[in-house]
């Protein structure tokens, strides 16, 4: 990506485009990735509520996976997941393993 020069920038570091955090892929920051264990998921959507990066994908009111382009691997989803009978539906797995 070509970086802008000083004359091309908005005054005082203002960001004039709303929602442009979407173009910043923070997924590369991750050392642990969340993985879904579908049989333990009760679709409570706690993970969707708590995810600070809006990286839990919900389709038809059901949990359907993660946006790994933006997920930073914080693990809040795993922590909040009630699972089924004590078995979590989200597990953090070290990247590269």
């Amino acid at each position: 990506m070509k970086l802008k020069n000083w004359k091309e920038l908005a005054l005082g570091s203002v960001i004039p485009e709303a929602g442009n955090a979407d173009t910043y892929n923070t997924g590369s920051w991750r050392t642990f990735r969340p993985e879904r264990v579908e049989e333990n998921c009760i679709n409570c959507l706690f993970c969707w509520v708590y995810c600070p990066d809006s990286s839990v994908i919900v389709k038809d009111e059901k949990m359907s996976g993660f946006d790994y382009e933006h997920c930073k691997g914080c693990g809040i989803c795993e922590h909040q997941c009630p699972g089924k009978k004590g078995n979590k539906a989200i597990k953090m797995v070290e990247e590269g393993k």
Partner: peptide, 14 residues
């Protein structure tokens, strides 16, 4: 608009 974002070494000088 967003005021006061984090600006890292790639843009701070500009």
């Amino acid at each position: 608009v967003t005021y006061g974002p984090l600006v890292l070494p790639d843009y701070y000088m500009e």
